[in-house]
Simulated scan of single mutants.
Amino acid sequence: MTDTSKSLPTYKQLLERKDAPPGSSWGLFGKDDQVGTLNLIDNAARLRGIASAVEGKAFSLDLPSTSIYPSLAPTRKPITHHIFQRNDFHHDEWLDNFYTQYGSQIDGLRHIGHPEYGFYNGYDHTQFKPGTDTLSIHHFAALPIATRGVLIDVQRYMAKAGLDLDQASGQAISAQVLEAARVSQGVTIEPGDAVIIRFGWLDYYLNRASEEARTNLVTEQFHPGLEQSEKTLAWLWDNRISIIAADNFALECWPAKPESPFFTPAEVRHEACSVHAGIMHRAIIPLLGMPIGELWAIDALAEACAADGRYTFMLTAAPLPIVGGVGSPANAIAIR
């Protein structure tokens, strides 16, 4: 482990904190920190990533801009692309309705706050304006994000184990299943690794779901994903993961299960209602400071990993350096 990761408390110890919100990493990377668990990407993590690229074959992990239609989120619209010419031998362009978290994306630390404690490191969300610095996505771009990647293919593991994985439901995948999939692949997770989870949902959405099912996803979003639980958070934190990504809409199962511990008391009493009620994003992003990748196109990468049993690679992601940005297209590449 690196010096930074060695000095960090366990998740159980995070829950016992009195100097910051329980279960939070606030202040552990510095009181003015802007990038959360991406701090775990150090020279050693990058060198491990480089060493994992043994073939030189590269995989783009981004969907084409037209792949998700209609939108999976009613507040996000597909881009409108305009091309213009100044003469017959010139082209330029602009985009309208460019929602940075529409397709293959990275959720930055401005994206979600905790309903009681607020945003990562206690920053004042009223500072989150276009062009302002605090928790802006451009800090991710400046790092940059380049580390060893680890793929955990939950769908393939569950199929081989004879376990059902219903892509059209909100099935919760426990940390126990996630860990069993990792062990079955014979892969370890090192501090600073980027971990990508394959549920097989994008393959279902793009290739097997009916047109009616795709349309219904706009209003009835159900997909499998990580179980909302403190055991899941402990798995993410104690493995010292820098960024967690998946091939579904929200990483965690959607919608949140009734037994989720992340409902507010008012939501439990049905005195408050929110599309985000009970979701684990409220702990992963603002408390742990861990960025989330969603809708990453990893099927081709997973095929290659399954073919030779090697589940590590060099991973780069290049968020747009938008000052004041909340999120960004992932612009992620894996090199094996």
Rank of each mutant, 00 (worst) to 15 (best):
M1D: 11
T2D: 14
D3F: 02
D3M: 07
T10H: 09
K12C: 05
Q13I: 03
P21Y: 11
P22R: 13
G27T: 12
F29M: 05
G30P: 10
K31R: 14
D32S: 15
D33Y: 05
T37F: 07
L38C: 14
N39P: 04
L40R: 02
L40T: 05
L40S: 07
I41E: 04
D42L: 03
N43G: 01
N43A: 13
N43R: 02
A44H: 00
R46F: 12
R46H: 02
R46Y: 07
L47R: 08
I50W: 05
S52H: 09
A53L: 10
F59K: 03
P70I: 06
L72F: 12
R76D: 10
R76H: 10
P78R: 03
T80L: 14
T80Q: 13
H81C: 01
H82M: 11
F89R: 09
H90N: 14
H91R: 15
E93C: 08
L95Q: 12
Y102G: 03
Y102W: 09
G108W: 14
I112F: 15
H114R: 12
H114V: 10
E116C: 00
G122K: 10
Y123M: 06
D124M: 11
T126G: 01
P130D: 09
P130F: 02
G131E: 07
T132E: 15
D133R: 15
T134C: 14
H138L: 09
H139V: 11
F140G: 09
F140T: 02
L143I: 10
P144H: 12
A146S: 11
I152S: 03
A159Y: 06
G162S: 08
L163Y: 07
L163V: 12
L163I: 14
Q167W: 00
A168N: 13
S169P: 12
S169D: 13
G170A: 15
S174Q: 06
A175P: 01
Q176I: 11
Q176W: 02
L178D: 03
E179D: 15
R182D: 06
V183F: 02
S184R: 07
S184G: 01
S184F: 05
G186T: 06
T188M: 08
I189A: 08
G192I: 07
F199Y: 15
D203E: 07
Y205N: 00
Y205M: 05
R208I: 01
A209I: 01
A213Q: 10
A213E: 15
T215R: 13
T215K: 14
F222N: 03
L226K: 06
E230Y: 15
T232I: 05
T232P: 04
D238S: 12
I241V: 15
A246M: 12
L251C: 09
W254G: 00
W254P: 00
W254F: 13
K257Y: 02
P258S: 06
S260Q: 05
P261Q: 08
P265E: 01
A266G: 08
V268D: 01
V275N: 05
M280F: 00
M280K: 01
R282M: 05
A283P: 01
I284V: 15
P286S: 10
P286T: 07
L288H: 09
M290K: 03
I292D: 07
A297E: 10
I298A: 04
D299H: 13
A304D: 14
A307E: 15
A307I: 00
D308K: 11
G309R: 04
Y311N: 13
M314Q: 05
T316W: 03
A318P: 00
L320W: 08
P321Q: 05
A330W: 02
N331Q: 13
A332P: 07
